[in-house]
Write a protein that binds this DNA or RNA. Structure first.
Lengths: 240, 240
DNA sequence: GAAATAGTGTCTTTAAGACAGTATGTG
DNA sequence: CACATACTGTCTTAAAGACACTATTTC
């Protein structure tokens, strides 16, 4: 941005800006996302991600956290910017940009979801990190998705797949204490492919991100596994 | 976004949106970025990335491409969205969000840079992919950087470091034909660390991204290396 | 021929995959 | 005791790093 002839655009109509939050969790070993039925046009009766306009006095991250609080009753969860969607015709009501965020929570924190909201299973029709829109299902039926939100959720899956191998995001989808097999289940659900158990074990234990609690599972019908806890790395970021 | 009480915000003042473009190239085996001296306040005489307001009828990517064309005379270069910066006080004139893009060009396409523009060397004060602001230098002197643009450039370096090992971005900084050592120089400049030559060779030749032209370097004072060309992968995205 | 980098071949090291075998809970 | 998964140890395989050696150009 700089002072130049473009400046007079400030007095012209300019785009509106919203945030949309893709709140993901793991359920039945599959990624799910929270969507809400739209009561009116556009896209009446279709399902949309929770979102809202960015206020003049809040940052984008604050706006996303506010949406999460107001529409899902959640606070203090993993929240990260995803991408800004700017197709000219993405909202038929006018020019609306959307800064998409994604949030990750363990299923234990989504026991009661607000009325009108649905936890939809994410169906990924591509492999690897190719990317593209996904389909959403509830009780086996495909849900109609509003706006470009199917692209947004698709990009979340793409981002998670690219990130889970070197950034500690898998833990965000699990409760405080978890077994190695549960963690592997998260990785497999995100990546959409089975993982070699032995090397996953070794890799995780060698990563230094896990700290064993002395405790074990109870009542599992077989030898109980040790429960681990996530230990955040010393400094932020990835430092190879 | 959805129809709810928030809708009346549409009639309230809402943020302006700009795009800023971080145009990077390689010069003297170091990453450089194009910045422009600001003639007036705010940040008068400091250096800023080229940018401009997003028009009501263009996508974000079109806006970034337009800025690149108007302010650097470039067309058809690698261009990708980076991040959207939304600090409330990032522009003292008012609430202005900025969708940052980064572009990559070979130095050969930046022979003549516009007057008022400077190709500044990027000084990275951190290692790995930790991230954070960078410093810019021209002729050894540190340049004052306007707005949050030092953070933007820092995030470009962070993104490139995370991406260069599995996505074909290194080639965008080289001319059509290049030697393996030149390609290694690009990777080393981006990563900020030396790379094992033997394994880099093997890795690159095994990647299938290079196709040898029969031609060789000329007049280099030693055995000339073969010139390679970049062959884009079959499908988009990364598919492990 | 000296200097400098290109390019080849091979040994070592490290991480992943495969798999056998033991351990320890529940029923 | 049967069963299921946890956990350990070892062999194999694949990729990276190290390094020695030959090749080819300019000066």
């Amino acid at each position: 941005m700089q002072a130049d002839p473009d400046d007079d655009l400030r007095r012209h109509p300019h785009p509106f800006v919203t945030v949309d939050v893709c709140l993901c969790t793991l359920h039945d070993l599959a990624l799910h996302v929270l969507v809400q039925r739209r009561p009116r046009a556009p896209f009446a009766d279709a399902f949309a991600l929770p979102g809202g306009f960015v206020r003049i006095d809040e940052t984008l991250e604050q706006a996303a956290a506010r949406v999460l609080r107001q529409k899902a009753g959640l606070d203090g969860v993993f929240l990260e910017q995803l991408f800004t969607f700017g197709r000219v015709d993405r909202d038929p009501r006018g020019r609306v940009l959307s800064v998409a965020y994604y949030a990750l929570v363990p299923a234990t924190r989504l026991q009661e979801i607000p009325t009108g909201s649905v936890l939809a299973r994410i169906d990924v029709p591509w492999t690897g990190t190719i990317g593209g829109a996904v389909r959403l299902r509830a009780d086996g039926d495909e849900l109609p998705v509003a706006f470009d939100h199917a692209d947004m959720v698709g990009m979340v899956v793409q981002r998670l797949r690219g990130k889970i191998d070197y950034a500690p995001v898998g833990f965000e989808l699990l409760p405080d204490r978890f077994t190695l097999l549960e963690l592997q289940g998260v990785h497999e659900a995100v990546l959409g492919t089975p993982i070699n158990k032995d090397s996953f074990r070794r890799r995780m234990l060698a990563s230094g991100l896990l700290v064993g609690t002395g405790r074990r599972q109870r009542g599992v019908g077989h030898r109980p596994a040790e429960l681990f806890r996530f230990r955040p790395p010393r400094r932020g970021g990835h430092n190879p």
